[in-house]
Computed example of a mutant assay.
Amino acid sequence: MTLPAENVSPQLTRNRRLIIVIGVVIPLVIALAAAFIMALWIPELPSPVASHWGTTGPDGYSTVGSVIVLPLLMTLVFAALAAFASWKGGPNGGMLWGHKIMVAASMFLSITLSVTAAGSLAVQRGLENAENAPAIGGIAIAAFPIALVMALFAWLMLPAAEYITSTPVTAKPIAGAATQRVHFSTTTRVGPGVVIIVGAALAALAIALAVQAVSNPEQLLLPAVIGLFVIALAVSTLSWRVTIDQRGLKVRSAIGFPRITIAPDQIESVAVVDVNPMGEFGGYGWRWAPDGRSGIVLSKGDAIEVTRMNGKKFIVTMHDAQLGAETLATVAKK
């Protein structure tokens, strides 16, 4: 059986080339160049080298190999994620603003990590003991504007973002339910593609913690605590429980926190809207859009849009959004 060929427009083809060049090739070349230069310095460096500085000087040490490899590894992982996330493009073949942010962020991350790592080793060349390494605050501060300018350049080199608007359809209360108690409950979760991206990002975090554990175990506690918190938060927000009853709308994560509750007397109107996560919210999860909307955006397609009395709008993507919206409209009307 022959699979049908993908219908790729010239615009999408051009965008994909830009994604590869700007979001993958250039960041990796920068990271590889920095790694090559740092490798040349190995004979001049102490062992171990300083890898973390406190207010009084170096307070963490690791192997020179981990300092060289870690920026390259993180650049590779993020560049791959940026390319994967933006490869399909927008509904009309253009780039969405969320795609542009990820591609530009790949450039920013590569330069920030590479310059900081190379600078931290440059100041240790010729030292017998890494404890005598000078502070690198100036290097880290200098890396930020350089990376920011290059990220801005990457953004400008990409095509204008495709603008997406959604037209909400007002939900009507369920007929004949005015004197009855109504209840709606469902679970909304991210799709397999998002799970792959999150899994890859968490794997990169786990590798970074493993490198820290091998190279500098005495300084592992704080990164491990932060890493475990990030992992728990990410996993908990992949699935949410949505409940609608006489108390209004309640949306809570898999572990029960965070949660959002909107009482019936806070609801001005309820609608169903078609949502594009990358185009309107810049990604998936608990998101905020430039137009002021917020919500739990886990999939592309139908969502409940709740307009509060103060004019703020809250979005929840889900299957059976039409039934859920009608149920919530019924509750809000009572």
Rank of each mutant, 00 (worst) to 15 (best):
G176S: 02
A151V: 06
L148N: 04
V149Y: 13
L158F: 11
P168R: 07
Y163C: 10
A177P: 03
Q180N: 07
I164M: 10
I146N: 01
A161E: 08
A171G: 09
A171K: 08
I146W: 07
A175N: 13
G176H: 02
Y163W: 11
A147I: 02
P159I: 04
M157P: 11
A177M: 10
T167P: 01
A171P: 04
P168Y: 13
L156F: 15
V182S: 03
A147V: 01
I146Y: 08
M150E: 04
V169Q: 15
I164Y: 05
M150G: 02
Y163N: 15
T165M: 05
R181G: 08
M150T: 09
F153K: 10
V149D: 11
V182M: 09
T179H: 00
F153I: 15
T167V: 14
A175D: 14
P173G: 02
S166Q: 09
G176C: 02
A147F: 07
A147Q: 01
W155Y: 12
A160H: 13
L148T: 14
L158G: 03
T165Q: 13
T170M: 14
T179C: 00
A171I: 07
V169W: 12
K172M: 13
Q180C: 02
A177C: 06
P173Y: 02
S166P: 05
R181V: 10
P159T: 04
T170F: 14
A175I: 10
A154M: 05
V149A: 15
P159D: 06
A171W: 06
K172Y: 09
V182H: 03
R181I: 08
L156A: 12
A177W: 03
M157H: 12
I164R: 11
F153P: 03
I146D: 04
T179I: 00
G176T: 01
M157D: 11
L152M: 09
T179M: 00
A147H: 03
P159N: 08
A175S: 15
M157I: 07
S166G: 14
T170G: 07
T165L: 04
A178T: 05
P159R: 09
A154P: 09
A161T: 05
A147P: 01
T165V: 06
P173Q: 07
I174K: 06
M150K: 06
A175L: 12
